[in-house]
Amino acid sequence: MEAYVSDRIFDPQRTTKSLMTDAGDLAPTTGLGDAAIQDDVRVRNPETQERLRELVDVINKVERRF
């Protein structure tokens, strides 16, 4: 979980770095727009945080299988 969290929020930049991808791929995967992933204010939005948390939860569940 630490790979995805910074200052107690799910950080899209850390997430993309950990997954070796970019914001252009992360946004549609989470169902968010590019601005929600790239804008510092919108990243802290509860809905954005919920989507990022859901993504990390899925990754953590699947990661154990591989």
Rank of each mutant, 00 (worst) to 15 (best):
M20D: 09
S18G: 03
E2L: 09
A23P: 02
L19T: 01
D57N: 12
P28E: 03
R8Q: 08
D57G: 02
D39Q: 13
Q38H: 13
E47K: 15
Q13D: 13
V58A: 07
L32E: 06
E47A: 11
E50C: 05
Q13A: 12
D40V: 05
R53K: 15
M1F: 11
Q49I: 14
I9H: 15
R44G: 00
I59V: 09
T15D: 00
D11G: 04
R14H: 08
V58W: 05
D39R: 10
G33N: 13
I9W: 15
M20Q: 10
E54F: 01
L32A: 10
G24A: 08
G24H: 12
T21G: 00
A36F: 03
T15F: 00
R65T: 13
T29G: 00
F10S: 01
N60T: 14
I59S: 00
R51D: 01
S6K: 12
T16M: 12
K61N: 11
D25W: 04
D7M: 02
I37K: 08
D34S: 13
V5I: 15
T48P: 01
D11M: 05
E50P: 01
L19G: 00
V43I: 15
E2Q: 13
T30F: 11
G31E: 07
R44D: 06
A35D: 15
R65Q: 13
T15K: 02
D39T: 15
R64K: 14
T48R: 05
